[in-house]
C-alpha cells in the first residue's frame, strides 16, 4: 500500500491528466521532492527558488493542514492520503 496524492486541476496536465498519483510513504517533503522528480513540470508550481513550498500551496495529510502539524517533516504513512490544494478566496 502506498500514499495517494490528490492533485488539483492546475497540476493534472503535468501528470498525464491524472487526479490521483501514488507515492512511497515518508515525509511530506520527501513526497513532494519525489513528485517534482517524476513530473518536472510541477516544480515551479509547488516550490519557490529556495526549494520551499510556494505560499499559495496548501498540503493536507488525511485532510489536516501540514502547516499546523510538522510542516514538510510531517510523516505520511502507507494508506494515507496527501491532498494538494491551491489557496483560494473563501465564500462569504
Amino acid at each position: 500500500m502506498a500514499v495517494s496524492v490528490r492533485l488539483p486541476t492546475v497540476l493534472r496536465p503535468h501528470a498525464a491528466g491524472k487526479t490521483v498519483v501514488e507515492a512511497d510513504a515518508g515525509s511530506v517533503g520527501d513526497i513532494i521532492a519525489g513528485l517534482v522528480a517524476r513530473f518536472p513540470g510541477m516544480s515551479g508550481h509547488l516550490l519557490n527558488e529556495s526549494g520551499e513550498l510556494q505560499r499559495f500551496v496548501n498540503i493536507y495529510v488525511d485532510d489536516d493542514d501540514i502547516r499546523y502539524l510538522d510542516k514538510a517533516a510531517t510523516a505520511v504513512a502507507d494508506g494515507a492520503e496527501l491532498t494538494i490544494l491551491p489557496a483560494v478566496a473563501g465564500g462569504a
Binding site: 488539483p8 509547488l46 505560499r55 500551496v57 491551491p86 489557496a87 465564500g91
Partner: peptide, 14 residues
Amino acid sequence: AGEKVEGLRSLDDG
C-alpha cells in the same frame, strides 16, 4: 474549495 476552481491558471493565482 481549491478543487472546484477550474479557472485557476496557476497556483500563483492563489
